[in-house]
Simulated assay, not measured.
Amino acid sequence: MKYTVGVDIGGTNTKIGIVDEEGKIIQKEIIKTLSIEGVENTLKRIWDKIQELLDKSKIDSTEVLGVGMGIPGPVKNKEIVGFFANFPWEKNINIAKLFKEISGKETKLENDVNVIALGEAKYGAGKGFLSSVTIAIGTGIGGGIFVDGKIISGFNGAGGEVGHMKLVKDGLLCGCGQKGCFEAYASATGIEREAISRLKVNKKNKLYEKLEGNIEKVEAKDIFDCAKEGDLFSIDIVDYEAEYLAMGIGNILNIINPEKIILAGGVSLAGDILLDRVKEKLKKYAMGVTLEENFSIEIGILGNDAGIYGASALIG
């Protein structure tokens, strides 16, 4: 039996899993990333944990084919990270080379959202399909494009950054510093910003009562929960979210024409109250041909394990 290792490195936590030949995670654990301790110390701690998980499963390290990693930043040639989002590390570090020197194992890298997309495409909601686009909707919006068995990484590793396509000329300021981005409107941050703006002028609603007037503390989940309880004010905000989601997804369909759109991240957990609206509004923004036959929009099914699965799939 041969094994691969998937490592999903995040700003706070790092998920590590051992995956067998049948595509099953047989051991997994979450450790603190502690990037402040430096790149080499972080990578050594990750390898130490991998060895610990192998020992638990009585697997010899010679049975490990390699280690795949998801990294928060653009990745070039599955080796070099252009820059690290929220990490105090230098630009253009060859993480694959460093980790191979530590572990002796073949190491391949991809952007963190790309490995989530690869995980869902190969093991999750996109399994069995030749093309899918995974959209991770949380604090921001990330994307991964899977076509003919491969992730589209782009020339400098920035492929799939769907959150920064422009929906509104000179629109709302995005965290990237530009204006009018998909992310500025349809992310959790975007929907929360819209809710705060509306709550300042309308306090007669269930959402305001739920927050006890502390409108700055609103979270996307609060809005969806109140909408599910029939609060018309919150339903209107969900409609706002669905409109921009449909606009962004429509653009993706018109350019990529995938068989499947997979939604991941916290906002996707809103479920049908959001998804049904997006599907209806999508007809305004996507060419009819992209919505025909077997096209579908689904919620990702791998949850927090998607990054482990996708990272491990980089090997082999």
Score class of each variant (00 low, 15 high):
95 I>V: 15
32 K>A: 13
203 K>N: 12
137 I>V: 14
313 A>S: 15
113 V>H: 01
311 A>Y: 08
309 Y>N: 01
31 I>Q: 04
286 A>F: 10
249 I>F: 12
303 G>N: 10
75 V>G: 06
69 M>Q: 07
76 K>S: 12
150 K>Q: 11
97 K>C: 10
114 N>T: 11
236 D>C: 05
150 K>R: 11
238 V>L: 04
48 D>F: 13
56 K>A: 13
219 E>S: 09
90 E>M: 01
189 T>S: 15
79 E>T: 12
237 I>W: 05
62 T>P: 01
132 S>K: 05
85 A>C: 04
108 K>N: 12
246 A>R: 13
54 L>H: 07
36 I>N: 10
282 L>H: 08
251 N>L: 03
109 L>I: 12
307 G>F: 00
288 G>E: 15
172 L>K: 15
149 G>S: 09
14 T>H: 02
96 A>I: 10
280 E>Y: 10
81 V>P: 03
82 G>K: 03
262 I>N: 00
208 Y>A: 08
1 M>V: 13
7 V>D: 04
244 Y>L: 07
75 V>E: 09
74 P>K: 02
18 I>E: 00
295 F>A: 08
116 I>G: 09
281 K>A: 06
106 E>L: 11
284 K>V: 05
310 G>W: 04
65 L>T: 11
131 S>R: 02
9 I>K: 02
18 I>T: 02
251 N>A: 03
14 T>L: 07
